[in-house]
Amino acid sequence: MTDILVVEKVSRRFSPRITLGDRIAGLLGATVDRRPVQAVTDVSISVRRGETLGLVGESGCGKSTLGRMLAGILAPSEGRVTLAGEPPMRHGHKVTTRIQTVFQDPFGSLNPRLRIGATIAEGPVTHGLIPRAEAGRFAGEWLARVGLDPAFAQRFPHQFSGGQRQRVAIARALAMRPEVLVCDEPVASLDVSIQAQILNLFLDLRRELGLTSLFISHDLAVVRHVSDRVAVMYLGRIVEMGAAATIYAMPRHPYTRALLDSVPKLALGGNVGVTFKPIQGELPSPLSPPAGCAFHPRCPKASDLCRQERPALLPQADGTLVACHHA
């Protein structure tokens, strides 16, 4: 399989905006926090044509920032993103249409004042993929494809439920005929029964269209369900990456293991019950990440080495990459 989306040593910092007020406060002797937030640090990954790469981690781990850099919406502070050999952004603006994004919040991601037919057809018409005269028919076809009535094209977003809106958002992204689809928490705000519908739609369309995709979620079970490979992020770095089946069956990084253990799991069949085991401690602030391995303050295996030296992301015998001194 060939790599279609390649990310090399990408980092992203967010500097706080220093306003006039902050400057005056600074002059008056107040302490103004000007430390940049290191959202993503030195991440290298590649997405292979036709696969789904799952990106999982807790809030603030940088998974959305990384996803936005891959999608060509956000420029990296350092490093390089290439889509089939070309950068998706030029001069801070996205230039390619070959990668599209589905956003988390279906209530925020659709323009409330645009009919959904127009929302779906706008991109393809603007980029000349279809003639303007075809726009109505085109939007109707896509609505049917994502399981909605083509007549809905004339409606506004507020007339739809969350699940229906997310279908529209998927139609809008796929109507651009992308090769790669980035899904940023696409089912996080949906009810369980609706979540299953949207995941099924995603699985069906992925197969039909031969899509490559990046699937970002905090929900381990959802990522497991849709992904071929999984990358686990903690505090801006990838700590473990490999085949989904391997990682879930045999997590090598203590964080991955702890994360899997924290989720209450329904066990049906013989031994009915729910088990989970919490990790100790809090997520550290990305403003002052711990020295050495960022996970060491919460890690049961932490040694002096972990406190001093950051482990590199190294391949194990089966090809899984793990960043841990004690893997």
Binding site: I73, H93, K94, V95, T97, Q100, G108, G123
Partner: peptide, 25 residues
């Protein structure tokens, strides 16, 4: 809001994003 980001992520030209998405809202 995400719909403006979605318009930029398509990508739509900046002028279109402002006139058709930002201004009406």
């Amino acid at each position: 809001k995400d719909y403006v980001e979605a318009a930029r992520a398509t990508p739509l030209p900046g002028r279109r994003v402002v006139l058709r998405h930002l201004l009406p809202n």
